[in-house]
Amino acid sequence: MDLKDKAALVTGGGTGIGRAASLALAKKGAVVIANYSRSAADAEETVRLIHSEGGRAIAIQADVSQEQEVRAMVDAAVQHFGTVDLLVNNASITRHIPMEDLESVTGDIWDALFDVNVKGMFYCARAVAPYMKKQQQGAIINLGSIAGQTGLGSSLPYAVSKAAVHGLTKSLARALAPDIRVNCIVPGAVATRWWEGREEQMNLLAPHLPLQRISTPEDIAAMINATLEQEAMTGQIITVDCGQTL
């Protein structure tokens, strides 16, 4: 798929992988809708950076865990650009809880992580699907995590939520075929603000990876673009982790 002039909705588009994906899509000629929940200034900076390079972008606020906010966001995007051709389901949250500390994992934490990380991705996919089906083409990328493959992550509920994202990807790929392709990019450690306060831990990890480096948001964005462009692939779980899971 040629990304030029396609309308791309990127959730969590203000920071980290979301910003890198927004910028990379804009460089391919896509028009970008940078979604944010609370990071308004960051999302507006993403838009400013795209505009400075001659691209087109807007920022739209919505909490993806709230179905009505998602539908309002997609309606606003369609009013601006006529449709939504591409969706990058990037918005995710976590809670840092030692894996062995089961007692700290409350029902509220389970609900919060699944509401954003799993149900939010479903709400966004469902809201854009009619527009993609109308055009008989569209592509969705869900952001998973190696935590969903290894069971080890920032917390037990986070790892389980990302395993659910991988399952959601396969189910949506079946449900939305043949018009809409759905794939999942699975990063390992990525140098984003998620490591804030734990940078030393991140730097200690790098030499032990086969490629001896930590992935950048731009690494993940490049794979997002490549997967959006690949028209012969759906339902795939694609790991980009500098060999972390080898």
Rank of each mutant, 00 (worst) to 15 (best):
K134V: 01
G235P: 10
I50A: 06
N117L: 13
E196Y: 04
T227V: 15
Q212E: 14
R174H: 09
H80I: 04
K133Q: 15
C124Y: 09
I238R: 02
F122Q: 13
T192I: 12
Q230E: 13
G153A: 07
G29N: 09
V160E: 04
H51R: 14
V88I: 15
Q136M: 13
I97T: 05
G29M: 11
T169W: 04
L86P: 05
D2C: 01
A7L: 06
V105S: 10
E196M: 06
D75P: 00
A206D: 03
A72W: 00
D63L: 08
E69V: 05
R71L: 14
E100G: 12
I141A: 08
Q212H: 13
V64K: 01
M73A: 09
D75T: 10
P98T: 09
Q66S: 09
L176E: 03
P210Y: 03
T239R: 13
F122A: 14
T227C: 14
A57S: 14
G243Q: 06
G148L: 09
R95T: 12
W194R: 10
L205W: 04
I17H: 03
N203I: 00
T245N: 08
K134N: 11
A77P: 04
T94H: 13
I140H: 03
D241N: 13
G151I: 10
V116G: 01
S154H: 02
G29E: 10
G167D: 04
E53T: 12
V32S: 06
V47P: 08
H208F: 12
K119F: 07
A129C: 07
L25A: 11
A76G: 06
R56D: 06
C124G: 11
N90D: 13
W195R: 12
G14V: 11
A226D: 11
I146N: 01
G188T: 09
I17N: 04
I237H: 02
V182K: 05
S22K: 03
C184G: 07
D42S: 15
G197Q: 08
A41F: 00
V64F: 01
G82W: 04
P98N: 07
V128H: 07
E69G: 02
V84I: 15
T245L: 14
G151L: 07
A62Y: 02
G107A: 13
Q244T: 00
E69Y: 01
A7G: 00
R71Q: 14
E45M: 13
A112E: 15
L172Q: 06
L102G: 00
G18Y: 04
G55Q: 06
L176Y: 15
P187I: 08
A20E: 10
I97S: 05
V165D: 09
F81I: 05
Q79P: 00
W195P: 09
L9N: 05
G29R: 06
I140W: 04
S92E: 11
M121T: 10
Q137C: 11
T94Y: 15
V32E: 05
V118Y: 09
L87V: 08
G138R: 07
T234N: 07
A26D: 13
N35I: 10
M1Q: 08
I141G: 11
A8I: 03
T11R: 05
W195E: 11
E100C: 02
D101Q: 14
